[in-house]
Design a protein around this nucleic acid. Structure first.
Lengths: 268, 268
DNA sequence: GACCACGGTCTAGAATATCGGAAATGATCA
DNA sequence: TGATCATTTCCGATATTCTAGACCGTGGTC
């Protein structure tokens, strides 16, 4: 029978979507979780079907499978589904096992206690700056970024440090592809100017910024470097504008660079 | 309508495995993540194949799919794969969206700052007590449990509060099924005695414990209740034995119950 | 250099998840 | 109460994913 086997690649499904081999259902399951992450709140099955183009029956099947494992769960308030507790557990396991986060948590806390200001630890993720740890200062300053969110590197002092190890060419490409104007309209958009700032930041070992990412707030950041001297992360304090007087600023800078050095040393 | 209705049940599937319908690959992908969680460290593909009984090609396929989405990633130190950054992001989204964790984080921190001791917030998860938030005290006391780990309810003061709303019958069943002796050998194993303690804790509004879960440490816990008065979580301080003098103990108890009340109120 | 053990990829046939549609359930409202 | 719409489950046919096992490269050992 098999004599007639049309050997041709058979993408009968014109569903060309994007490049993807591998398990379809697994990717779709992950897409569902990503959708919830993007929305930042509960999502209904109907939305999943509409947004992701997953057939009804399949969507319900996936939702059930994910639900049984507590990867998703009915939202506590209101209708809809959201990320479930199991993913929190997995996330915490990641945190406990990654040197940067495990050791970083202590240093971030110390720096917060020492300065009383909001402290963040950020890394470069997929060409963007991503906040991976945050401790609120006493001032309850409103910060745009939460743990897990990503912003273009030109929005923040820490972002500049994170890309400071790239050669000119790669750096230019990254900047051209990713920089955006920030909500405050104060972010630098000129690539040449940005590169100059980035190189300078690396040379002097810290970076500062005022009103670029957050209105009425400034930021002081210092690089975390690995054994080979590469910048793998940046630690930063976010400070209300009016508190950024010269003496306080100097004190903060000293604290931040000291904390960065402490963490760099701990990471070996 | 449809005159020809083949209504017959057709469970021809010899689906032997264990209870499970739904997408196989999705469940297997989740099993891989669970394995990593259980191991608490890097896992090799060979281990995945051996432990989960997944065929080689399938295992590699799944690993690739998960890897492309950064759900898993090569472990930083040494060989093997571990939970990836994407899961950290998802976990943080859960944290930011769940009232208990979002509001709880503040209260836990406050209580830590106020007392200087290690503070934990726990919930009941699948009949076990699970720590969902933790802030280290200044004393660097070694605690057995980390965020995400589960222990039997008879190991800790908080555990007793968490099950204190169950009717006698369910409570007995739960205890019989889950209690274990703790590493220190001091956990109460007698069900009747445990129930008496649990009922008392609920009546007086707090629970205490000494050396049961951690050697040379005691614990004071208070319940977080929802609008209907049900205990949905418990907040607790863990204190080195020698610091548990009467006056300090009283002060701690007052702080803990106050924090619990604050959080309960915030949750509505 | 020959051999083996191992981590990983590839392929064609077998088994299963997927899909459209229909039926059931449940919520809303006149 | 019944009609209407939205949500969820069920069903069989079949295309897709999974599986077993061959295959490949690499590194270690004698």
């Amino acid at each position: 029978m098999a004599s007639e086997r049309p050997r041709k690649r058979k993408p009968a499904r014109v569903q060309e979507d994007e490049g993807g081999e591998g398990s379809r259902s697994v990717r779709r399951a992950m897409d569902i979780l990503s959708l919830m992450l993007a929305r930042g709140g509960p999502v209904t099955v109907a939305q999943i079907i509409a947004e992701l183009g997953i057939p009804k029956s399949t969507a319900y099947e996936l939702v059930r499978t994910l639900g049984e494992a507590d990867y998703i769960a009915p939202s506590s308030r209101g209708a809809g589904l959201f990320i479930g507790r199991r993913l929190y557990e997995l996330g915490m396991a990641y945190r406990n096992n990654v040197d940067l986060l495990r050791d970083g948590a202590h240093v971030v806390e110390e720096l917060r206690d020492e300065t009383g200001e909001t402290v963040q630890l950020s890394v470069l993720d997929n060409q963007l700056m991503m906040v991976v740890l945050k401790e609120e200062g006493r001032g309850h300053l409103r910060i745009i970024s939460n743990v897990g969110t990503r912003v273009p590197v030109n929005w923040a002092a820490a972002g500049r440090l994170l890309v400071s190890d790239l050669p000119d060419e790669d750096l230019t490409r990254l900047l051209k592809a990713t920089i955006r104007q920030s909500p405050t309209g104060k972010a630098i958009m000129n690539v040449a100017k940005l590169i100059a700032q980035i190189r300078k930041a690396r040379r002097i070992g810290y970076a500062t910024e005022l009103n670029e990412a957050n209105a009425h707030a400034g930021c002081i950041a210092a690089p975390i470097v690995d054994a080979s001297g590469h910048c793998i992360a940046a630690i930063s304090v976010v400070v209300p504008e009016q508190r950024l007087t010269k003496p306080h600023r100097d004190r903060l800078l000293a604290s931040v660079t000291a904390a960065a050095e402490r963490l760099s040393r701990r990471l070996g």
